[in-house]
């Protein structure tokens, strides 16, 4: 799959996919990476160490700092894949140096799949 570079970098890991938007501020614990938004498809699951795929971000601009906090705590996602990256997540990925790609049909990805992301080229390859 080929998308657009949001922030460069390479990652290899397991996909965590949701069809629901994510608000990092208030919706994700900055210390553990666990999604805490009530009723969210990923509630109780951790984004830490995953290739996180979701449609787009929502909510407060402070969300960028939550991604930064996760990265400092070693709990950030390995990479982020969006249908369309919003400014809050884009800025979060840049300041935290998380590889990120958008303009990707994320429905083609499944939770648990192993993928390789080369964000500078915008390429996502399914390994298994």
């Amino acid at each position: 799959m080929k998308g657009r570079t949001i922030f460069k970098g390479k990652a290899r890991g397991e996909v965590l996919m949701t069809s629901e938007d994510i608000s990092f501020y208030g919706g994700c614990d900055p210390e553990t990476g666990v999604i805490v938004e009530k009723g969210h498809e990923l509630e109780g699951k951790s984004v830490s160490g995953k290739v996180l795929a979701f449609p787009t971000g929502k909510g407060s601009t402070v969300g960028s700092y939550v991604l930064y906090a996760l990265s400092k705590a070693g709990k950030a996602p390995l990479a982020i894949i969006n249908e369309s990256t919003d400014p809050v997540v884009a800025v979060g990925c840049i300041i935290s140096e998380i590889p990120a790609v958008d303009k990707v049909d994320i429905k083609k990805l499944k939770t648990g799949q192993k993928v390789e992301v080369d964000a500078a080229e915008g390429v996502i390859s399914i390994v298994s």
Binding site: P30, T61, V62, Y65, V66, Y68, A69, K72, A73, I95
Partner: peptide, 14 residues
């Protein structure tokens, strides 16, 4: 994004 209450330690570190 100035209140420490919203920024937290990570924001400050940035």
């Amino acid at each position: 994004g100035v209140s420490y209450h919203n920024l937290g330690e990570a924001g400050l570190e940035y």
